[in-house]
Amino acid sequence: MSAPVIAAEGLTKTYGSLTAVAGIDFEVPPGESFGLLGPNGAGKSTTMRMVGAVSSRSAGTLRVLGLDPDTHGPAIRSQLGVVPQEDNLDTELRVRDNLIVYGRYFGIPRRTCATRADELLEFAQLADKARSKVDDLSGGMKRRLTIARALINEPRILMLDEPTTGLDPQARHVLWDRLFRLKERGTTLVLTTHYMDEAEQLCDRLVVVDHGKIMAEGSPSALIRQYSSREVVELRFGSERNAPRRRGSRERRSASRCCPTGCCSTRTTARRSSSTSPPRVCTPPRAWCGAPRSRTCSFGSRGGA
């Protein structure tokens, strides 16, 4: 295996008494598509920020493209493409100018930026929106523009923090398609997600993170084999009316969000609203998608029995 483009050992980030990342180890070889899967607050974004050289680590070692982000921040950042969780497009500039100006931030000559901007608008299927205002774009278009922007410096690693959160199923599939093409071209992808189906679509290998620690590691299919079964039965107790007030219903919502596209029809989920310690979303074996049929069984009125 060639030298990893990212190597983290005992990587830790603390904010005062809060530990966001509690000593994680992972390596990403070039060309791999690597995922960090976990619930909100698991430490995914903090890890991404440290790898992206915009946040200094509290302990551990970290090498990105062989360099230490603490001392070579700009050198590392110049070779990364970053798609943040929240779109931070420049709303005062038009779509095409967003790409060009962002490229200029890297010191890339204007002419090169312009050529690349046109190519990237094609790639992001936004060529007809070149002169539009950013605010007039849909959520999915903004996301694609952010990805296009992240590619303007021809990065060696593309970092995507929850790339499809908040998008509708169709926009999500369009985005996956684009990312899959990048993966085929050999771009190293590092992405965080809540969704196992997304990880399955895009990741060669992933780590499951929770409470700042790595809980499991492997390829999506291996993780499903190891921690889940092909079929999971979801049982929900309580009537349709009172169910939403119960804890289980929240779990269920997240589970269905796990696969709004209907590819969850390949799955059946097991769950009891009364379970004493409900596993967190995306902690094995809860949120995997991957089995053939989805079936939710709701039982009568005596909820939580």
Binding site: G52, V54, P74, A75, R77, S78, L80, V82, P84, E86, N88, L89, D90, T91, E92, Y102, Y105, F106, G107, N153
Partner: peptide
Amino acid sequence: FGKLYDAMLSTSMG
């Protein structure tokens, strides 16, 4: 609100 500096500082600018 614009998060402009977030974007600028994730490039090689200081």
